[in-house]
Amino acid sequence: MKPKLILMSHGNMAYETLQSARMIAGDLAAAEVVSMEEHDGLAGTQKKLTALLDKLGEEEVLILADLKGGTPCNAAMMEMGMRENIRVMSGLNLALVIEAALSPIEDIDALVAYLLPIGKDAVAAIELPELDDDEYEE
C-alpha cells in the first residue's frame, strides 16, 4: 500500500500547495495537511500532528515539511523518532507534492529516494534563451 502523505508548513502554505496540486493532478485523497498557526508553537503543532497520526494508525506516512529546522519539521522529526512508520522530508514545493501523490512507488524509503532529486531539481534559475539575428527576422 502506498504511504499516506502529510504536508506541514508555517501558515497556510501546505494547504495552498495541496490545492494547487489538486488543480494540476486532480484529487489527491491520500494527502492531509497540518498548518502551524502563529499561536501554536511547537506544542500546538505537535498536538495537531499527533492527532492526525493517531487517526492514520500504523500506515506508513511521508511528511513533507516546508523548512528544515522549522517548527513543523521539528514536530515531524519528533514523531519520526517515536514511530517507525514515518519518514520526513523538508523543502515542500509543488513539484514534490505532485510527484509524491502520483508516484506508484509503495516502499516508503524508495519513494523518499525517488523524490529527493525531484524536489531539488524543482529549484532552478531560469534564463531566457539567446536568439540569433536570423531568428529575430522571422
Rank of each mutant, 00 (worst) to 15 (best):
E60W: 05
G57E: 08
E99M: 11
G91D: 04
L94N: 02
K55C: 12
G81P: 06
I86T: 01
V97E: 00
V88Y: 00
E84F: 04
A76D: 04
R83Q: 09
E79Y: 09
K68G: 11
P72A: 06
I98R: 02
G69Y: 06
K55P: 06
L92Q: 04
E99D: 14
L62W: 01
S90L: 11
M82A: 14
D66V: 00
N85A: 06
L67F: 13
G69D: 07
L67W: 08
E99I: 04
E79I: 10
L53N: 00
E79M: 15
R83C: 06
D54K: 15
M77I: 14
C73E: 05
M89D: 10
L56Q: 15
D66Y: 01
R87L: 13
P72T: 02
L67M: 14
N74H: 10
A76Y: 01
V61W: 00
A76W: 00
I86F: 09
E58M: 15
A65F: 05
I98Y: 03
L53W: 03
L92R: 03
I63E: 00
V61C: 09
M80P: 04
C73P: 00
L64C: 05
G70P: 06
M77T: 15
I98V: 15
E79H: 13
N93R: 10
A76G: 07
G69W: 05
G81E: 11
M77F: 11
L56Y: 15
E59L: 07
I63G: 01
E58K: 15
A75V: 04
E58Y: 14
I86K: 02
I86M: 07
M80K: 12
G91T: 11
E60T: 14
S90M: 11
L56E: 15
T71F: 03
A95L: 08
K55G: 12
G69N: 09
L96G: 00
R87A: 10
L94A: 06
I98S: 01
V61D: 01
N85D: 08
S90I: 05
N93P: 12
I63M: 07
M89W: 06
M82I: 12
M82Q: 13
G70I: 06
L56F: 13
A76I: 05
E84V: 08
M82T: 14
G91I: 07
P72C: 08
G69Q: 09
R87P: 07
C73T: 02
G70M: 10
V88N: 01
G81D: 11
R83F: 06
G57Q: 08
K55F: 09
K68R: 12
A75L: 09
L64T: 01
D54N: 15
L53C: 02
P72K: 02
L62T: 03
G69C: 06
E84L: 11
N74I: 09
R87E: 15
L62Y: 04
P72W: 04
G81I: 10
L62N: 01
R87V: 14
E60F: 11
L92F: 10
M78C: 07
K68H: 13
M77A: 14
D54I: 12
C73W: 00
L64N: 00
L92K: 07
I86V: 12
E84I: 10
K55L: 13
E58Q: 15
M89Y: 06
V88M: 03
V88F: 02
L94T: 04
M82C: 11
G70D: 09
V97K: 00
R87Q: 15
M89H: 08
